[in-house]
Amino acid sequence: MILYTPLSEHDIFPRQDESNVVYHKHKNCPVKCMDDGNGKRQIVQVLSTDPSHYMDPELQPGQWLDS
């Protein structure tokens, strides 16, 4: 299904529960992570403006980080 509308996706589909979302810097790169509650964090999104951060395999979404 493709929606053709000026509304943003978040206006149509409500945001998911983000209580376990944390933002922090890893290797000097700002990332959005999900905290599993046991001291481990998984990268959800890279929030950097530096293109090289997107090429770094350690910063790929899905990677687990030790906090």
Binding site: M1, I2, L3, Y4, T5, P6, L7
Partner: peptide, 9 residues
């Protein structure tokens, strides 16, 4: 309307 599904429209 604010639009919506292309194929339905």
């Amino acid at each position: 309307t604010v639009g919506g599904d292309v194929e339905a429209g």
